[in-house]
């Protein structure tokens, strides 16, 4: 029996399963992403979840400025996500405007791999903003 999609403010939406990749974050973005799972934000209630494998995911949510060491693992994870897929840059570092931009071992965000489909800026972005941005963006996906 297929579920037709959950209701969020009256609009039908689809579930969004994401694999998280830390590509050099300070762990601030991780903490706020984790907070989305607490009872105040309850992202699963909106059909959003962080899943254990890229094979189960609709896309990647990436944090950090993409350190050189994490560049390959990031690409490998991206390649392992089945099509169609989406790339979300979470936080200024991943978005390419964070404080570590010019450090020698940083590649300046996810852009070097692929232009992200969604950029959630902030250092770190607040959980409420993350949810809001994802909700607005999902509407544009139709």
């Amino acid at each position: 029996m297929a579920l037709k999609g959950l209701k969020l403010v009256g609009k039908p939406i689809k579930a969004l399963q994401l694999r998280h990749v830390d590509a050099g974050s300070c762990n601030g973005c991780e903490q706020e992403l984790t907070a989305l799972g607490n009872g105040f934000y309850d992202m699963q209630h909106f059909g959003i979840d962080v899943v254990a494998s890229p094979r189960h995911a609709d896309g990647l949510v990436v944090t950090g400025p993409v350190t050189d060491t994490m560049k390959r693992p990031l690409v490998q994870d991206w390649d392992a996500v089945p099509e169609p897929k989406w790339l979300i840059a979470l936080g200024d570092c991943a978005a390419g405007c964070g404080v570590f931009q010019d450090a020698y071992a940083c590649h300046g965000g996810v852009d070097g791999m692929r232009t992200p489909d969604l950029v959630i800026s902030g250092c770190p972005p607040k959980p409420q903003d993350i949810l809001q941005k994802i909700a607005l963006w999902r509407k544009t996906l139709g």
Partner: peptide, 10 residues
């Protein structure tokens, strides 16, 4: 050190 950004150098 997978997350080595090079902060001390920066």
């Amino acid at each position: 050190f997978q997350n080595h950004r090079g902060v001390e150098g920066q």
